[in-house]
């Protein structure tokens, strides 16, 4: 009751006092300033790539592109009923259907590969496991061992960030130059990048899982790996699978373009049509890619919803 008695009088003085005592963070201020500075610099520092095209040339390019945009048979006959047979031919003889299948296959193989490796590496990154006192249970060893466990967790995390920082397309290009035009190059490129992301997300899940069932395993001498395999992993299984499908969806999106590097997937057909100046086919395959991405999104959203609501 004493508290209520000392409650300050409302009024302008109180407002000013509240304003003075509002939480302030130098970091946030610095970040806002730095963000603005970054923006100004990015706008003001001139073109990154100097285009030598004049406005007329751009206009001419655009006219040529738009003129060739309607499907070739429709352009000749002026009848949109010619569209369907043309589309079917592109899917069949034009290898569109095959490319769709291979795009999905690429994404699935890569996502599965990255998932397996992320599961192997993530206990090393989860701070509650890679810790001298796993899950808060005294390990009883000091000094060097403690420093060692912290180093393990730091290094695994850094490794995840490093693999994550490598763009799939650049990795694909480099791996093709090493392995030759082999689907392995694209699968590995997708897998390496997603390994970093899944590993980090999985480590977060592992850290946020209630340690209740896992602690007795450690207390009875089951060790970190035992606790991870027998208690933490089953308890967080659904969330891990949700993340897997979330990454699978982005793999599908990325897989549509990886073919631009010259092997399988839709991207190859797109660049092929572009270099043949068949803009109608190019746009057709681009839209086919959009359909694939939407289908992947839909499928993954359905699975994720099912995992969230049916089985938790």
């Amino acid at each position: 009751m004493e508290h209520a008695a000392t409650a300050p009088e409302p009024g302008p003085a109180r407002v000013a006092e509240l304003r003075r005592s509002r939480p302030r963070s130098p970091l946030l201020r610095f970040s806002a300033l730095a963000g603005v500075a970054l923006l100004v610099w990015a706008w003001a520092a001139g073109d990154i790539y100097e285009s030598h095209l004049t406005a007329e040339q751009k206009g001419a390019n655009l006219d040529r592109f738009l003129a060739k945009l309607t499907p070739a048979p429709v352009r000749e006959s002026g009848d949109w009923s010619d569209f369907a047979p043309w589309a079917v031919r592109l899917l069949g003889e034009g290898r569109g259907a095959e490319a769709v299948l291979l795009t999905f296959a690429l994404a699935t193989a890569a996502a599965a590969l990255s998932g397996v490796f992320a599961l192997i590496f993530l206990p090393g990154a989860a701070r509650n496991l890679a810790n001298p006192d796993p899950l808060g249970i005294r390990g009883g060893r000091g000094g060097l061992a403690a420093a060692g466990w912290h180093a393990v967790s730091r290094c695994t995390r850094a490794f995840f960030v490093f693999t994550r920082s490598l763009p799939e397309y650049v990795l694909g290009f480099l791996l093709i130059s090493v392995l030759g035009p082999d689907p392995w190059a694209l699968v590995l490129a997708l897998a390496v990048h997603n390994f970093g992301i899944l590993g980090r997300l999985g480590a977060g899940v592992g850290e946020n899982t209630p340690p209740g069932p896992a602690r007795p395993v450690v207390a009875h001498g089951g060790g970190r790996l035992g606790a991870y395999l027998s208690a933490l992993l089953p308890a967080s299984f659904n969330r891990m699978v949700v993340y897997f499908f979330y990454r699978w969806e982005t793999c599908v999106r990325e897989a549509t373009v990886l073919g631009m590097l010259g092997v399988v997937s839709l991207g190859y057909l797109i660049t092929d049509a572009k270099s043949g100046r068949a803009f109608d086919q190019m746009v057709f395959f681009v839209l086919l890619g959009a359909l694939i991405v939407l289908a992947g999104d839909l499928l993954s959203a359905l699975v994720r919803r099912w995992l969230r609501y049916e089985r938790t």
Binding site: L53, Q57, K58, Y169
Partner: peptide
């Protein structure tokens, strides 16, 4: 949905073929 279903690289390719390369 439409904007994100086409990969940024494909948007780039479309722009390059339609008008030409510029930043």
């Amino acid at each position: 949905a439409f904007a994100r279903s086409i990969h940024e690289l494909l948007w780039g390719l479309l722009f390059i073929t339609a008008i030409g390369l510029s930043s």
